[in-house]
């Protein structure tokens, strides 16, 4: 297990975002939030993705289809604590809602339209009620995403080695990170290769993804240790001599089964070997970046 944070660790909010659907945002957000709660006490997970996967996968479809609490919190200024639900003793969820498109439209004409999540939720709750806040975000640009980034100021980008992952990271950098940085300091905490299963000694999408992010200096510093491969590691892989751990968050049936059981991975399968990856992600959020 990775080391516990020291007492000087400051409360932090983080958005899990990539401008591409199906890249593991919800899985990453749920299990990151759960590990942060395991290590630090109270954590809030906010689901702002209109697909509702995080909310469904934690068993709160009824909240998704009930009154539009996201509208009530962001637009009408209601207390977010009146709308959070419990996932575990230390982890709460502010669920998504099926009418987030309406919230998006209303935000466009609202005052301080990018600052309402910060003002109404993150600023009053972070540090006092919750040690960490994790925000799952939609895969498209818009006011809800602006709110998530401005409130969190920290970003974690999951990458699944599917067709189009290159454009996913390129678009995220160009249309999300660089635009946000024109207005405030947005820290990229980590690039997270997830759901890997292919060989690395052949030309596979897993290899292409891992090589692309590990071989570029400007990207390598954002790769967690569980996905880091040095030049020597690649040489060993190509020579058939690599005996290190398989890099990235690996595909495991129990990760999918945990979703169907409406639980975080730790609560469904506490013995799963990939929990150590989510523990390191929690440590990265605690420390404000990757420590090599």
């Amino acid at each position: 297990m990775t080391s516990k944070p020291d007492s000087a660790t400051e409360p932090r909010a983080v958005a899990v975002n990539v401008l591409k659907g199906g890249f593991g945002k919800s899985t990453t957000a749920i299990n990151l939030a759960r590990e942060l709660a395991e290590r630090n006490g109270r954590v809030l997970l906010i689901d702002l993705d209109d697909n509702g996967h995080t909310t469904f996968n934690l068993g709160y479809r009824d909240q998704y289809e009930s009154d539009n609490h996201v509208q009530q919190v962001l637009l009408d200024g209601e207390d977010p604590l009146d709308h959070v639900v419990s996932v575990t003793d230390e982890l709460d969820l502010l669920p998504s809602h099926e009418a987030l498109e309406e919230v998006e439209t209303n935000l466009k004409s609202a005052m301080a339209s990018s600052q309402r999540l910060n003002r109404n939720v993150v600023d009053p709750l972070l540090g006092d009620t919750y040690s960490y806040i994790v925000i799952d975000t939609p895969a498209n640009r818009g006011k809800i995403n602006d709110n998530a980034l401005f409130a969190a100021k920290n970003l974690l980008v999951p990458l699944r080695p599917e067709s189009g992952w290159e454009s996913g990271i390129t678009q995220t950098n160009k249309r999300l990170i660089q635009e946000a940085r024109q207005y405030f300091d947005l820290q990229l905490l980590a690039l997270v290769p997830t759901d890997l299963s292919e060989r690395l000694d052949q030309s596979t999408r897993d290899r292409n993804l891992l090589y692309a992010i590990n071989s570029r200096d400007e990207l390598a510093s954002f790769v967690p240790n569980f996905a880091h491969l040095s030049a020597a590691d690649w040489e060993a892989i190509d020579d058939g001599n690599y005996d290190g751990p398989l890099p990235g968050i690996r595909h495991r049936a129990s990760i999918d089964k945990a979703h169907r059981a409406r639980k975080p991975l730790r609560d469904y399968d506490p013995e799963c070997d990939q929990l150590k990856c989510y523990e390191e992600l929690a440590q990265i959020v605690e420390n404000g970046g990757v420590s090599r």
Binding site: G77, S109, A112
Partner: peptide, 25 residues
């Protein structure tokens, strides 16, 4: 006037709580 703690933000919240919809800038 217009920031996250601004006068207009407070006014907008008041209006929405009084059931005024589509409160425009």
């Amino acid at each position: 006037i217009d920031g996250a703690s601004g006068l207009l933000f407070e006014a907008e919240i008041m209006l929405r709580r009084d059931d005024y919809e589509a409160v425009q800038k």
